[in-house]
Design a protein around this nucleic acid. Structure first.
Lengths: 236, 236
DNA sequence: CGTCCATTTGATCAGGGTCAAGACGAGTGG
DNA sequence: CCACTCGTCTTGACCCTGATCAAATGGACG
């Protein structure tokens, strides 16, 4: 049986301030899981039995409305915590998480949360910092949806993804996992048709290059101008 | 000089699970403040020196966009914590808080947060539960703005306020603080004109009664139907 | 090679934003 | 006590953004 080594987590932001012995104790209670592409990590409404750390791959966090529409809450990248409902006193997951690519995750039983938070105060503080930034994200998104038009919201979403997972290629910065027009629509509160039209227009202007479930930002700077509304309508 | 008594806070949800001595120690470090109507409790971007508990009155939490538009994040009612940026590792307030009516608040220096959270674990757990429900609120709002039309969003907003601060009158449930069309617009991501038209229409249908900075929900049940889209278009 | 899904693109239309004007009501100062 | 002013609210007219409906194209994969 494989033992998990502390080097898997030692360098991650969530575990800064912990000594090797503490890391060993924490990882000793984790279970490593492999999640195949398109399979769920955890599901909305179900008992929040575990919390997770993504080691490899990408995960999409989705909330489903009563009417059956999906809204993408965020994408999780390697090194991030997810499913930390228990930190907030929840007994059920408020959203579902689905592997966008094949993933490797660590899982801890939720019952360990309070133990970890009190025994390893830096871990607790780091985790609550994460939650704080997610709360800020959510508010930022409310504000965006209240005050900005679709094109800017889509531009912001792409820039956020590029910052999070952008990989340099000859063409520009590639968003490093499969991302459809529909996905972008679910992130920005619009429809895939509108996203398609926007990307087509931007491709013509040379801002992005995109294909089937693939988006590359060619000119991040000009896209940012557009996102911030300081667009000079620089045509071709 | 007035001493603050633990009875001010003993029954509040945030302080459940604390014994009298603990309550005394906490309130002994608080300062009571009076905030006049329309005056700020704390301001966005400024150093988060304190966190607060609202004892009496109502407070509006607002985020201003770079372009100068305001978005109302939430209304705070008596007994609720606010300005708990420090719990999330923030050093500046992410939003401003303004007294909607004359208010009485308790203030603690932010530096005490970590001390409180570790010395009084129930207080910490309660506070993080509060943060959790605010995070859920924010996500719920993102979803609403992504998937629902303006009339439903406004209906939801009114119902939420009624649930939070509704006071029974002969006419129905009165929202218990001054609330303008503009305020409702800033809560729902629309314009005061649209809110005005909606309220006029609903008044005609007998769902609400409203006037200058004043809204009474006459028929919460029918308003809920409308909010949930199970509206039967029951005219007069 | 055929099927399935993502994508594109056109046409139409309506929700609600914007612009404009006026009515109403509360508080203020003379 | 009244006139005035200021801020809130109402209502009409117009128009634009982006949703909706419809159909075709194009890759990917079995």
């Amino acid at each position: 049986m494989n033992r998990l080594d502390r080097s898997l987590i030692a360098d991650l932001p969530s575990f800064q301030g912990l000594n090797p012995a503490e890391l060993d104790r924490m990882i000793g209670q984790a279970r490593a899981l492999r999640i195949a592409k398109e399979q769920p990590v955890f599901e909305q409404e179900l008992d929040a039995h575990s919390f997770f750390l993504l080691l490899d791959g990408h995960v999409r966090v989705v909330k489903a409305t009563p009417e059956g529409e999906d809204v993408i809450v965020r994408y999780i990248s390697p090194g991030e915590l997810m499913g930390i409902a228990s930190a907030l006193g929840l007994t059920a997951y408020p959203a579902s998480a689905v592997a966008v690519t094949d993933c490797v995750v660590l899982a801890w039983p939720s019952s360990l949360w309070s133990e970890f938070a009190s025994s390893y105060p830096s871990f607790g503080a780091n985790a609550y910092k994460t939650i704080g930034s997610r709360l800020q994200d959510a508010h930022a998104r409310v504000i965006e949806m209240s005050t900005e038009q679709v094109d800017r919201r889509v531009a912001h979403a792409l820039l956020k993804l590029v910052k999070q997972t952008g990989r340099k290629t000859e063409e520009g910065l590639l968003i490093d996992f499969p991302l459809s027009r529909q996905d972008i629509a679910e992130m920005t509160g619009t429809r895939l048709h509108t996203v398609s039209r926007l990307l087509s227009a931007w491709e013509e202007k040379g801002l992005v290059r995109s294909g089937r479930q693939k988006v590359t930002v060619v000119e991040p700077h000009r896209l940012l101008m557009l996102a911030e509304g300081r667009d000079l309508k620089t045509g071709g």
